[in-house]
Design a protein around this nucleic acid. Structure first.
Lengths: 198, 198
DNA sequence: TGTTGACTATACAAACCTGTCTCACTACTG
DNA sequence: CAGTAGTGAGACAGGTTTGTATAGTCAACA
């Protein structure tokens, strides 16, 4: 009659406790940031025991690092790259498609902002593993932008990667402040950039 | 022999306790963010008593709001606007001067990032007074950008204000991640923007 | 059937946080 | 000289946090 036996059989067959922990942490961290979400809230919403969490993740820091990894998988790869590849057909269209995807994101119901930027600013000691991880995931995004720039024929793809990321992050922060049309503003800059730098 | 009598005469002549509290809070909050700086650290570094802090500021939230006010005074007005007015002579030069000032800032020894952006993302409940205050101070910056755009002859100064702020915030976040040349990248966009939108 | 391993639940430790309170001291004021 | 207001130092309350320890439950497996 206790609640833990009601779902699908307890033990390791119950859809992996680790998976449920990460899933819950993903939701909570991405919507509320790292610092304001405590372990107790995660174990409550994931319906697991505290000891179980600490068996799978030796500390909150490790859990945060796993969350950032998952964020790169789900946001950068499964969402952003997939969105672009499914819509844009030309190389320049893919560069512009970044900002079309952002536009959709900003207008979606639960726009939660960029976890990499938020984490980077929240944990701002440069030596913290979390800070370094967030910076690394942002570098991965920039690397992808650089590849898009390369394919679009940019004269200096690395520079264009940096430029695109400035426009991207500026739009995201602006959207987080309420400017839902920020993606379109950045997109206009990109159009001129593609004309003059390829 | 106690330390509190050693400086310049105790009591209210000792350079106002309130002033010392705000000054210390300014340093700590602007470099470390809001959440990770506790009251105890402020009173220790300001060499005041806890009761004195709570006499001048009824809560930490009120202290944070006062910090954000002071940040607008010191950063937006005393630094950014003054820097621009002292260097640029033409209206368009003032718009570009925003990003020259940012460039100096990014390269300065203790670049601490934008407290308004950091606070906005750290306290992301839209109803929190702190969140609203940070958004308001960002709106004040944007309003100033709009005035610069107006003076530079922009066809749509409000739109250009938004555009400039996207470029500005993107550069600041990028610089916070290590890209010290971010201001130059944004400046290049502004040059083309001034050509096409005035 | 008896052992093992992952799980739940909960109490607990140690450290932090904000905010209140008391007490002694000092300077200014009437 | 006496009173008052602001202050420094620090104890304290009540809440939070992360992480550990204990005790018992359940399922798989030899």
């Amino acid at each position: 009659m206790t609640s833990h036996a009601g779902e699908a059989g307890v033990g390791q067959l119950r859809v992996g406790a680790r998976e449920r922990i990460l899933d819950t942490a993903y939701d909570l961290f991405s919507h509320n940031g790292i610092g304001s979400v405590g372990i107790d809230r995660i174990i409550a919403e994931a319906s697991i025991a505290k000891a179980t969490l600490y068996r799978h993740f030796p500390s909150k820091e490790e859990l945060v690092l796993a969350f950032l990894e998952l964020r790169e998988q789900r946001w950068t790869h499964d969402w952003l790259e997939t969105e672009i590849d499914s819509v844009a057909r030309t190389p320049k269209g893919r560069v512009l498609g970044v900002f079309d995807a952002l536009d959709e994101w900003f207008h979606s119901a639960d726009f939660e902002g960029c976890s990499f930027i938020k984490t980077l600013l929240e944990i701002d000691e440069p030596d913290s593993p979390i800070h370094r991880a967030a910076a690394g995931h942002l570098a991965a995004v920039r690397h992808k932008l650089q590849i898009y720039a390369e394919q679009a024929g940019a004269r200096d793809p690395e520079e264009m990667g940096y430029q695109l990321q400035v426009l991207m992050m500026g739009a995201i922060v602006s959207a987080g402040r309420g400017d839902l049309e920020a993606a379109g503003r950045s997109r206009a800059f990109v159009e001129r950039l593609l004309e003059s730098s390829t």
